[in-house]
Design a protein around this nucleic acid. Structure first.
Lengths: 114, 114
DNA sequence: AATATATATGACATTATGCTAATGTATACA
DNA sequence: TGTATACATTAGCATAATGTCATATATATT
């Protein structure tokens, strides 16, 4: 039962990472930080969101170690902690892309019959 | 502003996938199905959960296209829809592994000093 | 047709989550 | 020391997710 418990613990940690990814705004933040580090104001502007909302999302990402924060005077610059997070998101994005292409093909076939 | 909206839409779809991944039980289900297809009872036993709970998690995975269901008599066999989902989870798992290793090294350094 | 098995779903209570608005904190600068 | 700027956090509300019990549905068997 130890391995059972261990598997549950690992999947729990993994789910905690996924939880951080399970929000459109946070995904946009991660992709933005993958381009280059940014501070809270810049992120807020890019997301078209409010400052408290951005800050809350950043706290979630920060608490789980997906981003690092570094203060520079009054501003705090955030950066992505691990490129593999983007690689994982890109994999999921490729799944979505294939799914959309698949549906498009189905549509074409239906059109051809009609 | 079209690209802005498109980016938001893609990240929304992506977040929807991640939401399905953001639960320890569902991650265990996906890894189990990656080994081999299984029916609801088998999954329920493996997870040590109840049948309705397993069924609800499967519905979430099914609705988002992460798994396929196929009825065979009275049982329904589920299978993973796309290997890349496991690849993405493995990437996240590797991030966790490195993080743990990093912490372990820190511990060693502290030990060495004391 | 009646019954048994496998799975899904409805209803409910509990818990968690997100957002907005307001407030708190830390740094810089006059 | 006082004020402005940049972020973080809290409170309160509305929404949503989870697990469980009971029940419904679908298939197989007799």
């Amino acid at each position: 039962m130890i391995s059972q418990t261990l598997a549950q613990e690992v999947s729990h940690l993994e789910a905690d990472l996924c939880f951080a990814l399970a929000d459109p705004t946070r995904i946009l933040i991660l992709y933005a930080l993958d381009e280059q580090p940014r501070n809270v104001s810049e992120l807020t502007n890019e997301l078209g969101s409010t400052q408290p909302t951005t800050s809350r999302h950043l706290k979630i990402l920060r608490d789980r170690g997906l981003v690092y924060a570094e203060r520079q005077g009054t501003t705090i610059t955030y950066q992505l902690s691990d490129k593999r997070l983007i690689q994982a998101l890109d994999l999921l994005r490729s799944v979505l892309r294939d799914r959309i292409a698949h549906n498009a093909n189905l549509m074409d076939e239906i059109e051809a019959v009609v």
